[in-house]
Simulated assay, not measured.
Amino acid sequence: MMKTLITPLLFTLSAALLAAPVQVEDSRGSHSLPDVPQRVAALNWDIAEQVIELGVTPVAMPNIADYTAWVAQPAVPEGVEDIGTRMEPNLERLAQLQPDVIIIASPQIDLVPKLEQIAPVLLYHTYNESHDNAQAAIENFRRMAAALGKEAEAEQRLTAMSQRLNELKAQLSEAYLGQLPRVVAFRFASLTSVYVYGDNSIPQYALAQLGVAPAWPQPATQWGVTQKRLKALGQLPAETVALYYQPFDEEAKLQTSKIWQALPFVRNGGVNSVAPAWNYGGAMSILYNAEVLAEALLAVAPEK
């Protein structure tokens, strides 16, 4: 009887002794976790996107309905708990979910002291005007993958992305007979104001991977956007192709907007909307932006 009781006990003790802490890296440095996290709370959309891409279903994330409308890809798996907004998540509910790790981005940095009372916190800060946001997104994707024991999955996804970007680039070159137009990509702030994507933005980086040059270069900023009056787009040549991102609730009103209808590229037919893709996401957002931008460009390519 004694031998029967001792054997499982020894096995448990041996397993505990063999389990070493996991060393991980985030934007704050090196951290030690007791084990590879299984229950992951992702408190920002770019974080949730990457966790899902790595094949991990988060136990919690914020604003699922808005994520579905604005980020779109990847889809949120069944069973993920919506814990409120990105800036003010429901901490009480988060604690009840008992995550092994909470992963955040810069919008949640002020919450770190409170979050650390619930579980270990990893911060991945991607968007900063002092570095290349696209490269930071890729680096953080690899760091996050290492923390979750998903290094192989990350490399597979990055390789597939590179291959897909090359395919899209070839399709565009064929459609435009090697003479790709210059493109201005933007999102409407209102019927009279736009956010133009420039240096350090995911859309411009995605366009560059497709071989497309910007029609209206903008300086690097933290998020890669510069706000402009809509009428300022009138300075662009008529041969410019303008691509604006969905969703835009007032899109129907563009048909009666005198400012919009007077823009040279609108009169020339060089304009199209772009399906939703998150412009401030992680590494895979580069691919999703490239795919919807390529789709919009192919739709307005000249007939052969």
Rank of each mutant, 00 (worst) to 15 (best):
M1W: 05
M2G: 06
L5V: 13
I6L: 15
T7R: 14
T7N: 12
P8E: 09
T12N: 01
L13M: 13
A15Y: 10
A19D: 10
A20M: 09
V22A: 12
V24N: 06
E25P: 00
G29C: 02
L33A: 02
A41C: 12
N44R: 08
N44G: 12
D46G: 14
Q50E: 15
Q50M: 15
I52F: 00
E53Y: 00
T68C: 03
A69D: 12
V71H: 10
Q73V: 05
P77L: 08
G79L: 07
V80T: 02
E81F: 02
G84I: 02
P89Q: 03
L91S: 14
Q96G: 05
L97F: 13
P113A: 11
E116M: 06
Q117L: 14
Q117P: 08
P120A: 07
P120R: 09
L122Q: 06
L123V: 13
H125C: 01
Y127Q: 04
E129M: 10
H131N: 11
A134M: 04
E139M: 07
F141W: 01
A154S: 08
Q156A: 13
Q156H: 11
T159Q: 15
S162Y: 04
L168F: 02
K169M: 07
A175L: 04
L180T: 09
V184K: 02
F186A: 15
R187F: 05
A189V: 15
A189M: 10
S190T: 09
S193D: 11
Y205L: 06
A208Q: 14
V212D: 02
W216F: 14
P217E: 05
Q218Y: 10
A220Q: 10
T221A: 06
V225D: 10
K228H: 14
R229F: 09
L230V: 06
K231N: 14
K231T: 09
A232F: 07
Q235R: 13
L236W: 11
A238H: 10
T240V: 05
V241W: 01
A242Q: 07
Y244F: 15
P247R: 08
E250T: 07
K258G: 04
W260P: 03
W260S: 04
P264G: 11
N268L: 07
N268I: 03
G270E: 05
V271I: 14
V271M: 09
N272A: 15
N279C: 01
N279Y: 09
G281F: 03
A283M: 02
A283L: 01
M284H: 00
M284Y: 01
I286M: 04
I286L: 13
Y288L: 00
A290T: 05
E291S: 02
V292Q: 11
V300C: 09
P302W: 07
K304P: 15
